[in-house]
Design a protein around this nucleic acid. Sequence first.
DNA 1: TAAGATTTGTTCGTATGTATC
DNA 2: GGATACATACGAACAAATCTT
Lengths: 253, 253
Amino acid sequence: MSDPAPSPARPRRSRPVQVADQIKDWVVERDLKQGAKLPNEAEMIALFRVSKGTVREAMRILEAQGLIVTRTGPGGGSFVGEVSLERAKSLLANYFYFQDLSVSDVYQMRKVVEPELAASLAGKLSPAQIKELRLLVQEYPAPAQSPEEERDQHIASLRFHAKLAEYSANPLLTFMVSFMARILTDLTVYRRLYEPHNVELWARGRRHQLDLVDALEAGEAERASAIMRSHMEGAERLMQAQEARVMRRFMAV
Amino acid sequence: MSDPAPSPARPRRSRPVQVADQIKDWVVERDLKQGAKLPNEAEMIALFRVSKGTVREAMRILEAQGLIVTRTGPGGGSFVGEVSLERAKSLLANYFYFQDLSVSDVYQMRKVVEPELAASLAGKLSPAQIKELRLLVQEYPAPAQSPEEERDQHIASLRFHAKLAEYSANPLLTFMVSFMARILTDLTVYRRLYEPHNVELWARGRRHQLDLVDALEAGEAERASAIMRSHMEGAERLMQAQEARVMRRFMAV
DNA sequence: TAAGATTTGTTCGTATGTATC
DNA sequence: GGATACATACGAACAAATCTT
């Protein structure tokens, strides 16, 4: 369960890190669920025989990973807290900050994952979900008149994909699609990557999304997948005019 | 860049978290690269007007995310450090600890991503890399004689996929395939999920891997993709006998 | 090998802030 | 408002690691 490195000269973990691991073990052993209360600072100090400062550093480590949340005041303390989707995306984004990720890289992944998502959702959505999707597509019915509007449209389109991801019963699929939408959203916000104004491509993208919802509603998995694939190819062309590298910055936590 | 929540009663971030964010900004503003030295503790204290304990808690937060590394002694201090692939996988694994991830979920993803990886690698591998792959396949030439041997074979097979992922020029593809291999590896180690001994399926899996390397060497993308797809379907059947849920535990950092 | 310098690591005591009753 | 139970933050001292000479 622990780092299985046979340690030819192990880097020597600091006490706070050790204590953080011990707390994790303590939680796992008791199979504590989200919301369960951890011992308070004083008890931790007694439990692990370390000082307050060390306990606090350990807590910050767990907090940074999203594993616990802490509240002050009576009835306060530390509690196990599910890692949120948002935090998971932020932590992974930090990894790709150091990688040289291109727009094509993201689309190579999108081109296979998004069609699969579409196919697996066909016929599985509730009327309310279908309606929600149509609403998102309708958000920008007319071609953009300014770069700002075009950017907003692009982000709205990515929200459509993120929403689709939410509806999946497969957490891995949900995460991956949602993560890629976030990468591309940040990209369009912080660089002006939506610039090459192309009305024809935009109209086709919108048509695609509407057709896709129809196919999903009708339960036509094969067609939904095909539409999505085509949609991805269009979107890629729209962005690939730029050869910008993404992710050259830290993400907010 | 920051949490765009419009803050209806913002949770009030603690000082260490604030300082951690300030340090991140400090680093980004200066566009510091991997290995660059950060101010030492005393300088941080002066820089942000906080106590030593607060600075240290902030450092632990950044360390937990893999953004810095710290050494003691002369010439020591804190340095910006690339988030490693291993750490990124661990942090994301913590997220899926709380999700109800099934073997089918993982394979739904594998079935589309691994063939894409294979296709994109066809004709791109060096002779040394081809040799390395063949070595991994050869590692267990004979059918397993015991459950332990079968487990080892399964893990070796996953190492094959992880190695393939390493060779990709697409960091997103590399990460995803490697991450799934890790999930499944942990699964086979901590549960005995390789149990239903099936010699025929094993032989076919091995055949697949050998054929795959041939196709990669010959540069036949379409064939590599097809073999991988078939391989994934076989592997899924091998595991799906069990309906176990994965990831019901914390991962080591 | 040993001593000294530098920098992080750890502890303790105390005081303050905050939410609940 | 006051008492209580928590976390939060500070400062000073000392310990440990590691580099240099």
